[in-house]
Computed example of a mutant assay.
Amino acid sequence: MRSSNHLIGLMNFLTFLASIPILGGGIWLSSRANSTDCMKFLQWPLIVIGVAIMVVSLAGFAGACYRNTFLMYLYLWAMFFIIAILIGFIIFAYAVTDKGSGRPVLNRAYSEYYLQDYTGWLEERVTTQSYWSKISSCVRDSHVCGKMRRSVNGIPETADMFNLRKLSPIESGCCKPPTACGYIYGNETYWTPGTGLVGADPDCVRWSNDQEQLCYNCDSCKAGVLASLKKSWRKVSVINIVILIFLVIMYVVACAAFRHNKRMDNDEPYGETRMEKAQPSRIHF
């Protein structure tokens, strides 16, 4: 029985360690929300799940050490619900980031992003005016466009050099006009209209060389934010899937060990009774 308790204790310790990557993923999303992605509510489910796994695994560890049946029941039921919630979160994360990706541009290393490629709950959430005003303000305050400026030996980057850069979705969508608009490169965030007609894309007239405006009100900027969110969520989801598989294995082993403990507890009185019966009765005179 001691070996079973030791096994359960080890499982809970490993579960505690498994909660660290989940919590780390939530913290990483939080840092992204404060810097580029700017969707500040998305990281909280992961942080809550990570903290919950930590607390529950500590309760299970204590239950195994002190052979507290109540704590073990609490651990098993709580872990069951946490695993179910984590499965739901992974499915949700993949469902809301299922559609949309960058489109390649001729003679350019970077991709461009179009809002019509994204549909569903996340797209509606991002494009809602009340949310977008906060998101665009966050993108502006992150100075992501100002950080695009480069120079070689003190000489500003040329158009050909810029075209060979692999821009992030937000840099491509928010910091420059769409290529189809025909603007002429001045520097990374300053573009002048070409000699021909401006393209039919509504973003062509939304572009501004005002460094506080740029393309922050463009659909391409909203698409860039969605693409950045998709990339961040997919990275975290891969970690979550690995941790989920590990948690399921740990949960199955913990259930088996707990049932073994219960069976041993139930067998002990029965074994004692049989031993008592096997002993010869004493005759009293």
Rank of each mutant, 00 (worst) to 15 (best):
W207L: 03
I82Y: 01
V144C: 00
N187A: 12
F92G: 02
G271S: 14
I170V: 15
M79K: 08
D210S: 12
C138R: 00
G24Q: 09
S3C: 14
G173P: 09
D37G: 02
G224A: 11
K230T: 13
R2W: 15
Q43P: 01
L10R: 00
S30L: 09
G63L: 04
C145M: 03
S237N: 08
G182P: 10
S136G: 01
I241G: 07
F61N: 05
H284L: 15
S130I: 12
V225I: 14
W233Q: 05
T69M: 04
V225S: 10
S151F: 06
S220F: 05
W191R: 06
V252F: 00
V55N: 04
L74Y: 04
L229P: 05
Q211D: 06
A227S: 13
Y113H: 11
Y131L: 14
Y113D: 04
I90Y: 02
S111D: 15
A109W: 02
I87T: 10
T189I: 13
N261S: 07
I184E: 14
L106Y: 10
K99R: 11
E171L: 12
L23K: 02
Y185T: 07
P202G: 13
S281L: 07
S111I: 05
L76D: 05
D203S: 10
R150T: 07
W207E: 02
P156L: 00
G9E: 14
K134F: 02
R32P: 00
T179R: 12
G102T: 13
K231W: 14
L122T: 04
G199S: 06
A59D: 01
E268S: 05
N68D: 13
C221I: 07
C38F: 03
W233Y: 12
L247W: 05
S137C: 02
C138V: 05
L17A: 14
V152G: 01
S133M: 13
R165E: 13
I87W: 04
S30V: 03
N163T: 05
V126S: 13
T119C: 02
D219A: 15
S168R: 15
Q211V: 10
Q211A: 12
W121R: 11
A33Q: 07
L106C: 03
G186A: 01
F162I: 08
T119V: 08
M148W: 03
T97G: 03
F246K: 07
L226Y: 11
G26Y: 05
A227T: 14
I135L: 01
A59V: 14
Q129E: 14
A93E: 02
L164F: 09
G154P: 00
V152H: 09
N217L: 15
V242D: 04
K134C: 07
L226G: 09
G120K: 00
C138F: 06
D201K: 06
C65W: 09
S30Y: 11
C218M: 03
G88L: 12
K231I: 11
P193S: 02
G194A: 11
T15S: 10
H284F: 14
Y114Q: 03
